[in-house]
Simulated assay, not measured.
Amino acid sequence: MSTTPDDSGEFFWWDGLPYTLWRAHNAVNRVLHDAVKSLGVTVTQLGLSVHLAQLGALSASDLSRGIHITPQSVATALARLEKLGWVNRQPHPVHGRVVLFTLTDAGRDGVREGSARMAEVTERVTSVLSEGGAETVVNELRRILLELDGSERPMEPLWPVRGL
């Protein structure tokens, strides 16, 4: 691929991988947004709900650390999910100042529907790739994430809770 219109060898940012990833991210994000919009949630809110469904009760700081978004963004998203009836808050049974969030039945229903919609988007996106291409792209993107974000440790609560 040419680096400039006149092949001078000078780097043009729109030819680079970061720019292409950014454009792809924006395109996929638009499709994801449209897929979940009628659920009344954002992709971030659905993602937080999915983590709560998979991992059980978590604090806002657990979620923030786990998916590398700001605590303020998580707090805003959880407030919206609480207003929708998707999550409940409760004090941590041992560390009373820690607030835990759990999914409600409505939240579990939303996660099921949202996951089905995400599967449709996944199929649409991966269908344009060659055989095995999706696995290759995912593996390479994980390598980038590991380099830029560090550990691939799974999300876990800072203050584990048993029996919730």
Rank of each mutant, 00 (worst) to 15 (best):
P91G: 05
F101L: 03
T70R: 04
S115H: 12
T20K: 05
A57P: 07
L129C: 02
T102M: 05
N139Q: 06
L146Q: 13
R143V: 06
H68N: 02
R142W: 01
V111C: 12
L58M: 13
H92Y: 13
V125P: 07
E131K: 14
T126G: 00
G114Y: 08
V128Y: 11
L58W: 05
E120G: 06
L48F: 15
S38I: 14
H51N: 12
S130Q: 10
K37Q: 15
N88F: 09
G150P: 00
L78G: 09
R23F: 01
L81G: 15
T20Y: 10
H33K: 13
V99D: 08
T20H: 07
E147G: 15
V43Y: 04
E147P: 12
E135P: 05
R117A: 00
A119Y: 00
D105H: 00
G85Y: 12
V36H: 10
L63T: 03
E135N: 08
N29R: 14
L103R: 02
T104Q: 01
R117M: 07
F101P: 09
N26K: 13
T102V: 04
L48P: 15
A53E: 15
G110W: 10
V99H: 09
S59K: 08
V128C: 11
F101T: 05
L63Y: 09
T20E: 05
L63Q: 00
A75F: 12
G132Q: 05
V128H: 08
V43Q: 09
Q54I: 12
I67E: 03
S64W: 01
E140T: 06
I69V: 10
E82K: 08
